[in-house]
Design a protein around this nucleic acid. Structure first.
Lengths: 201, 201
DNA sequence: TGTACATCAGTGAACGCGCGTTCACTGATGTAC
DNA sequence: TGTACATCAGTGAACGCGCGTTCACTGATGTAC
């Protein structure tokens, strides 16, 4: 049992947890199930993580890494803009609605993270700002509130996929995704400058 | 034990379930806990509902009723428009972020509903269209796709509150709510007509 | 190079606990006569 | 009006089960000499 093999096991556990927790929820996924999916037995779990809560937080960060790395690692502004547009298109795709296990962890378990262990909540809160940082566009004219625009885009994306996952018929899900795309266009096109307190008339 | 008393018990169970399931999630709320909150013991539960799943679906609908009735029952178009604006303002309020137990069930347990019992999923899917029907504005010029606008507004509202609930510090939550408000303004102001397939350039 | 030993990843039985559901029972209700 | 009886909401013990976590053990690794 070399150190390298332990690291491999560790990664398999993280991968399995990140997938299963997004597919079934954090509470509904048991330590034994995760270990079994990683090709191990449940007893060895505590050689890798001090608790299920600690694993949940680590798995959440691991899932975020997998989802945002494409955009974050773009080498030029042009490549980044392209990766960003690809990210939005993939986010609002039929595949993302069906494949919870590899999708956005905020959409899959964000609401659950808010009421479970605090380290999981903190991991999810980090993900909010990390994802929001990827999304603002330069298209809005004038001194746009880019941070607010990023947050609103994350909220719209997350909400759209959450709604689409509730639809029974594929046409309903498609209509919801389409509405989300139109909404994204609107937020990209006309985002205002940072407003004085209370932006509503 | 009169029939009226049974109805009172039934309503107490529904009220307790609707609140607790929104506060703690469906799976994390036990039948015994709900019955105890309703002032009863767990054994009597099955005189009221055939299963916990059936209760979850009924409680979800009950929660939706409580949340949308104000707008749906408005007697005139003017009263309805006012109620709608109040609804949006309340939705994106600090109180809603803190008070999950009385808030929007889609924001609290929508993602969970998508992967649990099918009757719960169906109840949540109904709520999507019901809420989306309340929100479109007449402000957009031309033949706007009102149905899509309603869906996008629900998605943005739900997503914004989900993100705000993850924030640790009150200022972060306030910034997220403010971004959501600005986003709602943008979607109200400039929603296009129903687009031909594939609205992105 | 060969041997004794400490380390520790992984195993699988065991723990105490809370879950959803069942069931024999209680006792108040309302009807039949 | 008074009595016998069926109904059934609610009680609380019990069921089988899966959970997170612990622990004695196994056996391969790598170091000390």
């Amino acid at each position: 049992m070399s150190e390298a093999e332990k690291l491999k096991s560790h990664k398999r556990i993280l991968d399995a947890a990140a997938r299963l927790m997004r597919e079934r929820g954090v509470e509904a996924t048991s330590v034994a199930h995760i270990m079994s999916a990683a090709g191990l037995t449940h007893g060895g779990f505590y050689r890798h993580f001090p608790s299920k809560d600690a694993l949940a937080a680590a798995a959440f960060r691991h899932a975020v890494d997998g989802v945002v790395s494409d955009v974050e690692q773009a080498s030029s502004p042009e490549a980044r803009a392209q990766a960003r547009d690809r990210y939005v298109a993939t986010y609002l795709s039929d595949l993302h609605v069906k494949d919870r296990g590899q999708g956005c962890p905020l959409a899959a378990i964000g609401a659950e993270a808010a009421r479970l262990d605090d380290s999981l909540r903190a991991a999810a809160a980090e993900a909010v700002w990390r994802m929001a940082g990827l999304l603002p566009t330069a298209e809005a004219c004038g001194p746009a509130d880019r941070s607010g625009q990023g947050i609103a885009l994350v909220a719209l994306l997350l909400g759209t996929v959450t709604l689409a996952r509730l639809a029974e018929r594929p046409e309903e899900a498609a209509a919801i995704l389409s509405a989300g795309r139109t909404g994204v266009d609107a937020l990209e096109r006309s985002w205002p400058a940072r407003a004085a307190k209370g932006s509503r008339a």
